[in-house]
């Protein structure tokens, strides 16, 4: 009993922040997405906001775009991170410097990176100028649209650049814990290098890779500032669309903004639950 009270006391600051701020905010968002907003004279909760966004073609396009951005950048970042981690766990001259380079961009804010991408890759950016100076293109319109483009290449580029080191670091920590002995065993049991990677190392790294990738996906899916800077005018990424609806001069669109926020949060939660379930199964298997 005393133990329990003690634990509660220690947890209180975290619980107050989580419960008081986060859950209250989430609750208000939910209420308003159900069009319960007494200040505007809305006192009868209904699902009209959800119905409205689901029937808007713009919303579905934005949802698809956000899923595309999150899935593509997560997959590319995870694959590259896996390769990087496998190289970086070996000792070679200059390894410390490469590790430093890989970790450096963890400290750079997303928005700064986004503006950097804009400077480099936009149709009037540095690479376009270089191409023009080299006579490869005759004007900005000839440079491929890599930013504010319909395929969100600029956004994906930024997320890959930014999240790759995060996944790499988690994988490196995993690799360090695992050691190389299981691989040595596999080799002595007749597995080739590739088989050892495919049937021993990769399955053993999967829990770490899945949880890191899940976090990256949820972030890339829900973050707002990067698609705002690097995204096309239409379709907009879901968080941008939600923000736009919320800041609209017509207050009646606010419930729709809230409904979009709830959808974003739900998809993120669903994904994390999926990852947690996979990890639990992995842990049960390992026991």
């Amino acid at each position: 009993m005393t133990d329990r009270r003690h634990i509660l006391l220690l947890l209180a600051p975290a619980l107050i922040v989580l419960g008081g701020l986060f859950l209250t905010g989430l609750g208000l968002t939910l209420l308003r997405s159900f069009r319960y907003f007494p200040a505007l004279g809305l006192t009868q909760p209904d699902l009209a906001a959800y119905a409205a966004i689901l029937t808007t073609p713009g919303f579905l396009k934005s949802l698809a775009l956000s899923l595309w951005i999150a899935a593509t950048s997560t997959l590319i970042a995870a694959a590259l991170a896996l390769g990087a981690a496998l190289v970086l766990r070996q000792t070679f001259p200059g390894r410390a410097f490469v590790s430093f380079l890989v970790q450096l961009n963890l400290t750079i804010p997303h928005i700064v990176g986004a503006i950097g991408i804009l400077y480099l890759f936009s149709q009037s950016g540095s690479f376009a100028r270089l191409a023009y100076a080299a006579g490869l293109i005759s004007g900005p319109q000839d440079f491929p649209a890599l930013t504010q483009d319909p395929f969100a290449i600029g956004i994906i580029l930024l997320y890959v650049w930014k999240e790759l080191p995060f996944i790499t670091l988690i994988l490196l920590a995993n690799l360090q814990t695992l050691g190389e002995d299981h691989e040595a065993v596999a080799r002595s049991l007749g597995a080739s290098r590739w088989q050892t990677f495919r049937h021993v190392l990769l399955p053993m790294l999967m829990p770490g890779l899945a949880s890191a990738s899940g976090l990256v996906f949820a972030f890339a899916f829900g973050a707002y500032e990067v698609p705002l800077v690097l995204g096309a005018y239409s379709p907009k990424a879901l968080p941008v669309l939600a923000w736009q609806a919320w800041t609209d001069t017509d207050l009646a669109t606010r419930p729709e903004a809230m409904a979009m926020a709830v959808v974003i949060a739900l998809i993120g939660l669903l994904l994390l639950a999926l990852v947690a379930r996979t990890l639990n199964r992995g842990e049960r298997d390992a026991r």
Partner: peptide, 16 residues
């Protein structure tokens, strides 16, 4: 290693 016909059992069982 996989072509030698030599199998090794480590001190630690190292099961997968």
């Amino acid at each position: 290693p996989e072509r030698r016909g030599v199998a090794m059992v480590f001190q630690n069982p190292l099961l997968f």
